[in-house]
Each structure stands twice: as structure tokens, then as C-alpha cells.
Nucleic acid binder design. Sequence first.
DNA 1: ATCCTTTATGTAAATCCTGACATATGATAC
DNA 2: GTATCATATGTCAGGATTTACATAAAGGAT
Lengths: 197, 197
Amino acid sequence: MTTLGYAILGLLSREDLSGYDLTQRMKGRVGYFWSARHSQIYPELARLEDGGYVTHSVVEQTERPDKKVYEITDEGLGALKSWVTRSPEPRPIRDELTLKTYSMWLAEPEEAVKLFREEELRHEEQLAHYEEIRAWMESERREELGRTDSPEFATYATLRRGIGYEREYAEWCRWVADSVDGRKAGEKKDRGEKRGG
Amino acid sequence: MTTLGYAILGLLSREDLSGYDLTQRMKGRVGYFWSARHSQIYPELARLEDGGYVTHSVVEQTERPDKKVYEITDEGLGALKSWVTRSPEPRPIRDELTLKTYSMWLAEPEEAVKLFREEELRHEEQLAHYEEIRAWMESERREELGRTDSPEFATYATLRRGIGYEREYAEWCRWVADSVDGRKAGEKKDRGEKRGG
DNA sequence: ATCCTTTATGTAAATCCTGACATATGATAC
DNA sequence: GTATCATATGTCAGGATTTACATAAAGGAT
């Protein structure tokens, strides 16, 4: 079973979904930390059904094309349960911006600052989006969040991971930009280029 | 040009290295956020040489097998420089533990706590390792770190990213474990299983 | 009528990456 | 002697993922 398979089972354990529905969920990152395209999802669903982890039924629709709605089986739920608490074998983190950072000494400082300010913004926007969802959950799903064995708490926990990740990333980008820009730890405050028309 | 190609150029821009040397560097994560196996590195070196980004010379050794030492070309350095400040197109983050978290409501709380405590420890150990390097750099490379256009600062910046990442991850793991365990935000403090002989 | 969009489901080619297979030199240990 | 380890360089099969190709039904706009 692939990790994508478990991602799909994780969604199907909460509600029955079509391949198209799954694709929509996967775009917005399942639990905020997994994603896949439909070209990967449809074949995976076929494999899952082949393995007995899911079944499907065709739902006829009048106002749109018919669809296949998938349901998790007992076998699928069992597989998912036993996977959940198994230690994931650590896989390497690959982050292109950090890799670029390793060679940023070759770049023009102005361009480097621009890059990190842009990235800081990207992560702050993502953070703001997550914080909105968090505020909504904390007010509208208070009771469910009190029980750590609820799907809502599980979703909330992944959201907290997303928040921490984005906040840390944004802060780091700001620290790099400020350092190169000479505001905090940097040295050259005034390179004097293109100044005073 | 692939991202791996730029990772290799990033290393070769600092020093001439053999494929074997590169493999060693890549194991420990270039800039703490990229990695590759030798089976990927050797073909990539051939492609880089084919594209004129690197050249190699055979260095004969007496106490060990001969080796090919690679050197970056002006063209390679130019390609690397122009890549460094280009905005990376955002690629999806995939994290298996967070994906598992999304389905943790299906698991036994005890097993979930165990998982997150283990992961917390893993990230704290990695953090401690990074902090050691940081302390060494801050005391032994003080001058170079004052210039943000030095390779040392670039390395240091990626190290700071690693530190922030691991710290945040460990904290999150602790928060999840504590929540499920009932220490901070959790509810059920005593499930009473296997208690008192 | 025709075009575009959304819903809906698939396949195929190419790329990236891992794990296994393969070979050779020289040092050290037994 | 030979087994093993570190150095050193490669190839190959397969899995995971992306991008592009492909089709179709139904709705709304022009």
C-alpha cells in the first residue's frame, strides 16, 4: 500500500467520496500536508478496490455526469488503523528555497532580499489563511475539539502543524532578508546604488 | 536543468569534488535541505558535463582507487547565479506524520501518544545536533558570518532554517502528545486500563 | 448554433527518486 | 590466504509524481 492509498483511505474513513471529490480535497492538501492530482487518484482508487480496501457504487445524476462514489471497507479501515500509529521511516526533506539559500552568496544582495521578502509574504498569506480556519474551528467546533479522538481534533492538529510551519518559515525568510538588508544582523546598511536621483 | 543539478553546482561552486565526495555531502543534506544517492549523482554529473556546466579531471591515487574530480565552469557558475534568485514555483509539502495525524482519531490514544513522543525525540535530537553546529559556527566563524555574501553565512542561514524547522516540529509533536495524554488541552486524564495489578 | 466552464473519469509519456545490482582498488583484520 | 571495509564509479528496474492528452455530459453565455 502506498502513502497516497492511505491518504485516500483517510478521507474515505470520514465520508464517502467520488474520485472527483477526492481530487478537490487533495488540491487543498489533505490534513494540510498531502496532495495529489486526479491522474494519480483514479488509478490508485482502482488499486484500492482491487485490494478490497474500498468499493464503489455508481450514482446517477441528472444535472451533471454520473459518478462513482467510493466507500471504505472494513478491511480498508483496519489497514488504515494499523498504519496510523506505525512510525514513518524518515524521508528526506527537499526544499528548493533553502537550497537556493545555500548559494545566495553568489547573488546580488538586492535580488536576494527581494526573493526572501516575496517568500515571506507567501508564507504569511498562507499563515493568515490557516489562522482564519483556526479561528472558525475554535469557535464553531469547540465541543468536538475537546475530544482528541474526534476527526475534528485530528484536522485541527494538522492545521496547527500548518500554522507552526508557515509561521516559522515566514520568520526565517524575514530574518534572512533583514540580515542581508542590514537591518538586524547585517553589516552594509547603505550600498548607495541608485540613490538621490 | 534539474534542481539536483543546481544542488551539485552549489557544492562545486565552493570546492572541487568527486562524485563520491558529492555523495557524502548529499547524505548529510546539502544546506540541510536537499539530499541524493550516488545512483542519481553520477548520471547527473554526466549530464552537467554534457551541458558544459562542469568539467572533470582524473586524479590518480596510490592508496585508494583513482577518482574524477569535478570543477564548475563559468557557464555553470552563471547558470547557478541566475537560478539562485529566481522564485521557486511552490511545490506541495508531503509529510507522512501529519497525514497520519489526520487519521489519528481512529487509533488507540496510548499508541498515538507513543508515536508523537518518539517523533518529538527524533526532532529534538536533530535539533540538538544542529545547535551544536550552530554554536561551533558562531564561535569559530564569527568574522565570516558578519558578511552576508560569504558562503559561511549562506550555510549558516540554511542551518537556521533547519533549527527553526526541527524546533517547531518537536514542539508540535509535544503539543499533540500532551493533548492526547491529557496534560494540557486534553480531557480524559485516566482511561484506567491495565492499572493497579 | 457555438463556446466556455464545471463536473466527471480516465490514459500515456516523461521525470524524479529509491533500492538493488555490479565492479574494482587498496587497507586492515583474522 | 581471505574476508571485510572504505573508497570509487557506474547501471537498471521499479515506484511515485507531474504534465499532457483524451473524452463526455450538462449548464450558461454570446
